[in-house]
Design a protein around this nucleic acid. Sequence first.
DNA 1: TTGTAAGCGTTATCAA
DNA 2: TTGATAACGCTTACAA
Lengths: 340, 340
Amino acid sequence: MLRPTTKDLAKEAGVSRATVDRVLNGRDGVKEKTVTRVNEAIAKLGFVRNIQAANLAKSQKYRFVFALPRSGDQFKDEIIRHIEEAGATFAEDLVWCDVHQIDENDPHSIAAFLTSLDPKTTSGVAIMAPETPQVRDAIYRLEQRGVAALPFISDQTTMKDHWVGMNNHSAGATAANLIGRFSNCAGGSIMIIAESMQSRDSLERRLGFDAEINENFPNLRALPSLETYGNPDRAQDIIESAFRNNSDLVGLYVLSSEARPPLSVVQELIGTTDLIKIAHERTPFTESALKSGNLDGIIAQNPGHLVRSAVRKLKANVDGRQAKGSQERIRVEVILRTNL
Amino acid sequence: MLRPTTKDLAKEAGVSRATVDRVLNGRDGVKEKTVTRVNEAIAKLGFVRNIQAANLAKSQKYRFVFALPRSGDQFKDEIIRHIEEAGATFAEDLVWCDVHQIDENDPHSIAAFLTSLDPKTTSGVAIMAPETPQVRDAIYRLEQRGVAALPFISDQTTMKDHWVGMNNHSAGATAANLIGRFSNCAGGSIMIIAESMQSRDSLERRLGFDAEINENFPNLRALPSLETYGNPDRAQDIIESAFRNNSDLVGLYVLSSEARPPLSVVQELIGTTDLIKIAHERTPFTESALKSGNLDGIIAQNPGHLVRSAVRKLKANVDGRQAKGSQERIRVEVILRTNL
DNA sequence: TTGTAAGCGTTATCAA
DNA sequence: TTGATAACGCTTACAA
């Protein structure tokens, strides 16, 4: 039942523990033949290294920075809250988490920030920012310098599936599915409100939404996306005019992560209504809207899970491991009044 | 940035590290005054013990047993699969997981098994079994002997909120909510199929279901629960007769964790239909039923999360810690065709 | 290219 | 009631 140690490996391979360590960590300056012998011993004994002991010896500590947009509302607050909570949870693994605010619309300043990170003090960064050439390059250079980088919530195409966040296509499709099924017998049009359609996330949600509507709900029609650009006056104007011009509305989909600003406008404009309303992310606002019947469903990604998954992935990266499979998939959660 | 160590504590309190260790671990044979001094030093320096180093020194290993019912179908298989996966994930924390099958309907044999567990080889047990006096007592004695015990999926009232599983009242209510909203304009009755209504879990789901229907869907009527007792012939009979006697059916709720047996019977009896069907737990069967339109929604608890949460809670218990809050809440998940 | 020996932060076994 | 001292499994100077 006792796992073999480096001592056992050393004996088996007829070398010292220092040499075993060199092989285990891929350091060079070891004869090819010795490497082979050690590797054979590893295979033969079924050696699994004790990471905790290794960390103890190295006095390894991890400091991770979460780079989040300075703008934002309650969803951002939730994320920050969970970063703090994760800091407490992972403290025993010698992990520290910090939040750094970035200007999401200023790629140069983001790149400058990433460039300024010192591998000596920072083990990794989780980055929530839209994809731009500057940021993409900065991430690349960061990893060259030995700082782990991980796209967070906002996708970066270059990183393939190395990122943390939910499948936005599926999220949009699920919003459409809910509106379609909840409206059942009725036909009509659906208003879609976004902060901006510039980001990949928004596009994917919209694509998923349209695909689902077109495929399964022929009597529903998704209107063009209204973009608020985070401007309350503009939001007021375009939403009001959309209500005027569409008398057959049956549903409303708030596609952006921060649901409060647009939904407040809507609530003020039309008050209670039997319009079916779906929004993203669980926050104090969406939660209470759900309870009061002002919202029919929330499509959410679990903020705690997002943060912990990011920490585990960054840590695995630093340790030179692969993060474990199914745990890291971020679910597209459906939250209704009954499963708050 | 460096955390204080026992060495710092010893210096601060003017004692040796051995004494610090005694105080930290609540061992006795230390003068009251010394204890106070060490505790003051802990508070003053903000000492946080390094569990990894402690485990290394103790050569601490954790062996957890999952006691699962021998009967069961695909949901049980999913659980077992995730126990194996968790075994791999937690291997680096020196955690081993084993599965042991129990006869869920034979409380004496369950109690005997629990009694047979040796604290030397077993750190804790996660128990999935209905509550009975015998099991309750065995759990109590188990904990006296220093083996951590944790009700798993099946609730045990005596353990208060020390268990792992979803809120079954909320789960039932969510099933009702979905059927209610999906059926929208239609009124009628809802068939409810359970394996048995003996267990607390079933009762709570049923209570939640009824509460939601009564409160929010006055035009719907939940029929008495059909109990299959896990017997295919009986299932066939009672389901067939229920279909005969209720011409106004609009929905069907399979309340038990294993949905395949009853749903297979239903599929054979009525084929495709526009009856709204909701079942529990994500398995290959329910997944494919959702895809093919034979099922409208799944109410699920994430099996991987269940297992990992159990491991973390047992481990925290062994370490004499409290498990961390929000991470351990098992969500009532709603799974639709679009967010599989 | 390899080995020796000290050290990481805790616990355990003695002896005092 | 306390304190030395040696582990635990691994890394890391420094020496050979």
